[in-house]
Computed example of a mutant assay.
Amino acid sequence: MTSFVELYTELDHTTSSDQRRTILEQWSASHITTPTSQPTSSLSELEVDVLCGKNKRRVHRNHLIALARTACGLPDWLFDECLTQTSDVSELVSVLLPDGTDVLPQDLPSILTIVENLAALADEERDAALVRMWRSLHRNDRFVLTRLLSGSRRAVLRRADLFPPSQPEPTATAVEEYPLKAVILYVEVGYTPAESTYTVGLRSGESIVPLTRLSARTLSDSDHVVVNNIVKSSTRERFGPVRSIDATLVVDMVFTGLEPSSRRKSGLKVLGARLCGLSPTSTLHDVATIEELQSMWNDVLSQQRSSDVVPSERTLPEHP
């Protein structure tokens, strides 16, 4: 493994820290071997930054999508369906365009020089040059080039992956998590489905009140497909990357604590919130109310007091 493109695409295909370290070891074997007390790869600081998602935007994502739509030559409905499934324009152009034979330089600085020179061109000249490159490059090179142009913050590496895993410290006490059913109100579409964020809410009278935001990273691939289909079929409004959808998609979540918050419509700040998954058999009637959540948490605090445990939060006021 000698080229940065090969390294980037290999890392992009895994979420396992062990596999990442194996890939870095293969990279090191073809470069400089470092002592075990040092990072396990010969990556430069620039390479580490880019792999960890520190990337500046050179061309707006929406413009790249419009350009890809024209370059691919697919019917709009088919292109939109592909975009719904991946939401990553880099992956889209790497898959939908015919495979070329040209490759980018092996080292990252030379690749970035090409990217910067391309971005510096006048719009029409840049677009024409980019489409020519898309059609001539190998799919992996096309993928990395587009990632760098779009300014994607997707990290294919964590800095912790650069060092041998350390022995985890034992946890003194486990933090208790409390289950809750909520409904998705807004979806902030990420570069990939796993990078999306959901705003979920609870019932309050006849209304649905936003409660907190949840990362979509914990969802399975099949759940991502369900969410994407709902977003496509029931979007009511768009605010940039945010989609307001019908309140039909119920999820299971957990949290570790609550605090009063006058800045939020719910009157609550949720601590340690985590998405567990979709709840396909649940309906809006199964979603908790703000009042039920407040009552449940006050009961938890009362039990803590009766057990001589100092509560971490004070009793919550009633929701207006």
Rank of each mutant, 00 (worst) to 15 (best):
S90D: 08
T113Y: 11
H31F: 00
H224L: 08
P260I: 03
T40G: 13
I114A: 13
P317N: 09
G277K: 09
Y178P: 00
K265W: 00
S244I: 09
I114M: 13
D123K: 15
Y186C: 12
E81G: 08
P168A: 07
S17Q: 04
L249Q: 10
H319E: 07
R238V: 10
D299A: 09
A288T: 06
D76A: 15
C72L: 07
P317R: 05
V187Q: 10
P260Y: 00
V59S: 05
S28A: 15
L278V: 02
D252L: 11
D88F: 11
R238G: 07
R154V: 12
S16H: 05
L121Y: 02
R213Y: 07
P193C: 08
T248L: 14
K56S: 04
L137M: 04
L284G: 05
A273W: 10
S196M: 11
L64A: 08
T2M: 12
A172K: 12
T15V: 08
Y8T: 00
L83C: 06
E91L: 11
T36N: 09
M133R: 15
P35Y: 08
L11V: 05
S302F: 10
C72H: 01
T199I: 11
D80Q: 09
M1W: 05
E176H: 12
N55L: 11
G277C: 06
V93K: 05
Q106L: 06
V93R: 04
